[in-house]
Design a protein around this nucleic acid. Structure first.
Length: 632
RNA sequence: GCAUGCGUAGCUCAGUUGGAUAGAGCAUCGGUCUUCGAAACCGAGGGUCGUUGGUUCGAGUCCAACCGCGUGCGCCA
């Protein structure tokens, strides 16, 4: 095994080809054999060439294909087929032991079929706790910005994506050996919080028995109260609105001014460390976070107090941050505010308001600096709504401009905005309840869990169901896992940048590419293994049938699927792998008897194949944060 | 207006540095259970990859223009 370094940051020339980035030992061996063949056939020209090895696009083309010949032949002015033949002949000694069949097809494709024993050996090699997944991230750090709740506000569907995508990115990196810092960038500071605090003060609310729902109402009331409708007032005068309307707006205007003064006064007390105000503020955070953590637990998202790095955490870094940009000559005064300009766009980044206070961009800059300089993250992943694309582009460029992305090693930290799309309702508009309210995440989860439980209970009614006779509590636990899996798989299985329509019927279906389908494959295998009553993990693997071979090759792709998903910040790559694996297993199981197989050696081999498949599915699902029940 | 993202089967979506006849799922139609979990499997039909041009041995993929939809655009976060 040669997992020297992550190819993305490996020194130039040492990286394996894209198609094989961190692939399992087997394809890596094949790649090496082809490279040496290229060198011995073509010398220097061959050394510079890439075998362009990838999984075969169709089964009839074998297991792998190498596409180097066409491009290379062109640059050398040669016939691609002849050139391919020449390379294969030159590398015969190295390729022969691996390949059962090697042929040049079409305009110059090299189709490769591996020897079954080679596939079996490779599979046995990955049959341990690692499941063949390497740890190129060992000793490396990544910060994952996820969840991003606002104190005193109910979680809504946007947080669903920020949480589960972020959780999955964190789990993927952990699996690859990275040290992961989950960073929950809470909105827990500044004017919005002061507004809510002030509003609660005025209403003399007892904070000791307040709920998040109450807080959410206070927040919205504060927003409404504070809305200074000057524009509306002017318009009313303009259009000669009735005196009542004008009086109403004037009252609102005056009222708003008074409230604004109270809000600013509260903010000063909070920032000044006034004990009672700070205590109330902490209470708000505690109430909010208790429910956030409950919801995260329901969702299967790893999140707790230790991950909270909210805006308040960076409050002392705001002034130094602004100063640093001024000192570096990167910030300039414009209309009273401080802005950072960029050469390639008109839009500047505002880092200080004209009243001298800072704003969200300032906090983001301070947080990025903290993540790279203090946490030592060489990768910073932001799982935030796509609407903030421009904002993060500006922040990243500002960080780069000031040099805060420079690592001690001299390399540059990678900042990635995983810009996810919106969750839409059936009407293709952002998801709302029937009454037009924002959908809370809790309501959404309740619905999904209820749905999963109903499906599982219904199934358990059938006398021959493996779940028949289970206790209601057990069934409900399975149903919850199924309902959550339905939502998460649906979310993570398409390109995260896309919007998607939230359709619970489709998600919770046990047919097609869904979470429950993958869970079913896992439960099915668990049932088979339990029935066989054997744990013959050391049995030699015999890959005779086409379906066995296909399943084995699929399993060998696991490591690459995990690495690809992590590198590209694309959980859908792993989701697709899980679906294909479950498919390959079902096809295998359809045509290959396992328990009923009379040949004891073949039976043991197939049981082992089942066992590895089960573990890979469970492991892969866990990287998406999805549970794999043993029965369903 | 400027910026940015997206247009692939009736619907929902894959498609990795440009590679063979563009793939899945759903829906539709047709086959597989007295036998290992049929929540499964096998098969069929269904496409001018938004449009037009360009780059080249080869374009869904790269470039340009246009059309359509979404999103963003200095003192909110």
């Amino acid at each position: 095994m040669c997992w020297a370094a992550d190819p993305m940051t490996a020194p130039h020339g040492e990286s394996t080809p894209a198609a094989l980035r961190g692939a399992a030992a087997l394809p890596a061996k094949l790649d090496a054999a082809l490279r040496s063949a290229l060198v011995s056939a073509l010398g220097e020209a061959g050394a510079a060439a890439d075998p362009a090895l990838k999984a075969a696009t169709q089964p009839r083309f074998g297991d792998f294909q190498a596409n180097f010949a066409m491009g290379l032949a062109k640059s050398l002015g040669r016939n691609p087929r002849e050139l391919a033949q020449e390379v294969l002949a030159a590398g015969a000694a190295a390729l022969e032991p691996l390949c059962e069949k090697l042929e040049v097809a079409g305009p110059g494709f090299v189709n490769i079929s591996l020897r079954p024993s080679i596939i079996a050996d490779a599979l046995q090699e990955m049959d341990n706790d690692t499941l063949g997944v390497p740890t190129p991230g060992r000793g490396r750090r990544v910060a994952v910005d996820l969840c991003g709740v606002n104190v005193a506000k109910q979680l809504h569907v946007g947080h669903l994506r920020a949480s589960i995508i972020g959780d999955s990115m964190a789990r993927l990196h952990e699996r690859l050996g990275w040290t992961v810092f989950r960073q929950n960038h809470l909105g827990d500071w500044g004017l919005p919080i002061a507004m809510t605090l002030a509003s609660l003060e005025r209403a003399a609310v007892d904070l000791s028995r307040i709920t998040l729902d109450d807080l959410n109402r206070a927040y919205r009331r504060a927003q409404a109260e504070g809305r200074d409708d000057e524009a509306g007032l002017a318009a009313a005068r303009e259009t000669h609105a009735g005196p009542h309307r004008i009086a109403e707006l004037e009252a609102q205007h005056e009222g708003a001014s008074a409230l604004l003064a109270h809000t600013h006064e509260t903010l000063r007390r909070l920032q000044g460390g006034d004990q009672a105000t700070v205590a109330a503020w902490q209470r708000l955070i505690a109430v909010t976070m208790r429910e956030v953590f409950e919801t995260a637990a329901t969702l299967g998202v790893l999140l707790d107090d230790t991950h909270s790095r909210g805006e308040s955490f960076f409050r002392d870094q705001l002034a130094p941050t602004v100063d640093a940009f001024v000192q570096a000559g990167l910030a300039e005064r414009d209309q009273g505010a401080l802005i950072v300009r960029f050469a390639d766009r008109e839009r500047p980044l505002l880092i200080q308001k004209s009243d001298g206070t800072s704003l969200y961009a300032t906090t983001d800059l301070a947080a990025a600096h903290y993540r790279i300089a203090k946490l030592g993250a060489e990768r910073v992943i932001y799982c935030v709504d796509a609407r903030q694309r421009d904002h993060f582009r500006d922040v990243f460029d500002a960080i780069h401009a000031i040099g805060w992305d420079r690592l001690p090693s001299g390399r540059t930290a990678e900042m990635i905005h995983v810009a996810f799309g919106a969750v839409l309702g059936a009407d293709k508009r952002p998801l709302k309840t029937r009454s037009g309210e924002n959908f809370t995440l809790k309501a959404l989860l309740d619905e999904a869990v209820g749905r999963g439980q109903r499906e599982v209970r219904a199934r358990a009614q059938q006398p021959d169901a493996p779940t028949a006779g289970l206790q209601p509590a057990e069934l409900d636990a399975i149903g919850q896992a199924v309902g959550i899996a339905a939502i998460k798989y649906a979310d993570l299985s398409s390109d995260v940048s896309r919007d998607y329509v939230f359709d619970l019927d489709r998600m919770v279906s046990f047919e097609g590419e869904t979470g429950p389908y993958a869970q079913y494959a896992h439960a099915r295998i668990t049932g088979i293994l339990a029935k066989a009553g054997a744990s013959s993990t050391a049995a030699p693997l015999r890959l005779a049938a086409a379906e066995e071979r296909a399943l084995a090759l699929m399993l060998l792709r696991y490591a690459a699927a995990v690495q690809d998903a992590a590198e590209q910040c694309a959980p859908n790559r792993l989701a697709a792998f899980i679906f294909e694996l479950a498919n390959a297993f079902n096809a295998f199981y359809q045509s290959c008897p396992v328990i009923k197989e009379p040949d004891a050696v073949l039976r043991a081999s197939r049981l082992r194949l089942c066992d590895i498949t089960r573990r890979v599915i469970a492991d892969a699902l866990s990287l998406l944060g999805i549970a794999a029940p043993d029965r369903m």
